[in-house]
């Protein structure tokens, strides 16, 4: 690559990054401004940063032109964290062994079952939700964390199942056969060979499932009352009678992006390791 090429390539990459990152950067900047500075015309990059938005989120007092409002943002954030983490944990616990079974044991109807699980994703959530609400109320699961985590499996489980299954299928059967023939049980083979080799896939599936669960809105809106609602639903509170609180919304976004962002950076290590481990084949 010639020096000119290198400069041009660098320039192009910078442009692309700017284009995609700009909204996020702008939100970050907004979160340190008051509603007035945000809404001034023309907009400016220069302002005096303030922590008032974060303070009001953390203390639970939403400052509007009409006075102070109670919000439960931190509670919502905690709910999001609890719901997403537990859903993914349950999803991995159930989904990874199931994915292994679908990948390795070709039993009668296995394809049909796997497809049925995927087809949960085809149904419009609202259609599923109405009957579910009634059932949940009858069996006492409405407005409980357990009920929500259960319903979240509709999002999480098919995703984990199908991604991880692909990774298990990519492990050459011979590698597992070799371990069996060496004298190990099938369960030891699953733990010592299949799981470690599919680790990057499991990490990727877990991460994606977490993001999907985190971003879910409709299930929690219908099935949970205020004290169990995640940030996605809780953010509705920012639309107040006296206008939209842009600064506080921005701060809310920054806080709610943070966990997924941190997780993505952490999981990246495993994803990259998975690629460089490439020796699985051949």
């Amino acid at each position: 690559m010639s020096p000119v090429e290198r400069v041009l390539r660098g320039l192009a990459i910078t442009l692309v990054i700017l284009f995609f990152m700009f909204p996020i950067l702008w939100i970050l900047l907004m979160s340190f401004q008051t509603n007035e500075t945000i809404l001034r015309v023309p907009p400016s990059m220069v302002f005096e940063p303030t922590l008032i938005n974060y303070r009001s989120l953390i203390t639970g007092k939403l400052q509007t032109a009409a006075g102070s409002l109670e919000i439960q943002f931190m509670r919502n954030l905690w709910n999001s964290l609890l719901l997403s983490t537990s859903s993914v944990a349950v999803g991995l616990l159930l989904g990874v062994p199931a994915a292994y079974a679908f990948a390795r044991l070709k039993f009668r109807g296995s394809e049909d079952i796997a497809f049925t699980l995927l087809s949960f994703r085809f149904a419009p959530p609202l259609l599923v939700l109405l009957p579910l609400t009634i059932y949940f109320q009858q069996i006492g699961l409405a407005n409980t964390y357990i009920g929500l985590i259960w319903v979240y499996q509709l999002i999480v489980l098919p995703l984990i199942l199908w991604i991880v299954r692909g990774y298990f299928e990519d492990i050459p059967a011979d590698v597992e056969y070799a371990y069996r023939i060496a004298g190990h049980s099938w369960f030891a083979t699953f733990r010592k060979i299949a799981l470690p080799l599919a680790k990057p896939g499991i990490a990727a599936a877990g991460l994606l499932a977490f993001i999907f669960a985190w971003n879910n809105f409709i299930f929690a809106l219908v099935l949970a009352s205020a004290d169990k609602q995640p940030v996605t639903v809780g953010a509705l509170a920012f639309v107040t009678a006296s206008g939209i609180q842009y600064g506080q919304i921005a701060a809310g976004i920054v806080l709610s992006i943070a966990p997924t962002f941190a997780l993505a950076i952490y999981a990246q290590r495993y994803l990259v390791e998975g690629l460089s481990l490439g020796a699985v084949k051949g």
Binding site: V175, Y179, I193
Partner: peptide, 13 residues
């Protein structure tokens, strides 16, 4: 039994 495979089938990890 012991078995050796054509593509070696070593445990990569």
């Amino acid at each position: 039994v012991g078995m050796a495979f054509q593509n070696f089938a070593l445990f990569p990890h």
